[in-house]
Nucleic acid binder design. Structure first.
Lengths: 157, 157
DNA sequence: ATTAATCCCATTGACGCCCAAAAATTCCCA
DNA sequence: TGGGAATTTTTGGGCGTCAATGGGATTAAT
């Protein structure tokens, strides 16, 4: 299954290094380069292979090169991303920029998101997960109400 | 990946020199020449290899040579650009014109922009980055609203 | 001649690369 | 199915190399 699934919390050592969860490594293609992109609305960073950036660039291509949207998005995409090298043990060292963005100090949460994954400060990750669960549950309630159905949702997703 | 990514803040020494971030050097082709162009709408300068100017010239070619647009753009492209030499350690010396344009005194921010990069005064860079993040987040909100879904976007593309 | 640009070398700290120990997982077999 | 051995991951640390920075000395420009 070629996508990033599940979540793991790993330790950041005193040199600022963290292991990329082993199950994520083959999805990255067993190459030692990792791309990251700061989230614009969450205290997290997105990470993945080169496709992470390429997807952004594909989106950029569809915009008018002289528009404000293009300028802003390209600024964020290219200016707030970075390439990290993995060491022989599959670790990366977190930059100061990433620490500032996420609030990570000595532990980091890796969260699978399908074609990419995210890095969070563990407490914030757990909090956001609670929030997300609640909202998804509420959405489901609303859908049921709107559909006028009394059938109970299965909760299995 | 052959493009300028991520951002770095480096020190300007008392001689006015700054290091070009090492990851940018190979993208420039390991040559010791760097071309700069004043931004017309931001307190920053664009920089890159010869392609920076060539791209501008390619754009110019598509314009009517007798139009006001051609005249003005050619004036800016050729008159407001410069060539800087890198020293043995990969540093450039910032000109007075660049200091005036950017407001740089003792630190300079290098910002990857894909096929070129920008040089900013660090505080201004950070301020503009905040602004850009906010606007990109808003763009995303709008897209979602238009799509009619309440589900959180993926943060990726 | 004075100032600036260039070249060279030194220092410091960060980073890449290597190996080792601890912890967790998988595998195997009784 | 339980226990333990073998393997894989995670974590820790040493060390050499490279990048960033500072400064002196030499050369060029006006």
């Amino acid at each position: 299954m070629d996508r990033f699934l599940s979540n793991t919390i790993n330790k950041v050592d005193r040199k600022g290094r963290v292991s990329i969860p082993a199950p994520f490594r083959p999805v990255l293609g067993n190459v030692s380069r990792l791309y990251t992109l700061m989230s614009v609305d969450q205290p997290s960073v997105d990470a993945g292979g080169p496709e992470l950036i390429e997807r952004g660039e594909a989106y950029l291509e569809k915009l008018d090169p002289f528009s404000a949207e293009y300028e802003l998005y390209s600024f964020v995409l290219h200016g707030d991303s970075s390439e990290l090298k993995m060491d022989g043990e599959g670790r990366i060292t977190l930059s100061d920029a990433i620490r500032d963005q996420t609030g990570i100090s000595d532990r980091a949460a890796f969260v699978g998101r399908g074609h990419f994954f995210q890095i969070w400060e563990p407490e914030r990750f757990l909090a956001y997960r609670e929030e997300a669960r609640g909202k998804v549950a509420a959405m489901r309630q609303n859908r049921m109400a709107n559909a006028g159905s009394g059938i109970k949702a299965d909760g299995g997703a």
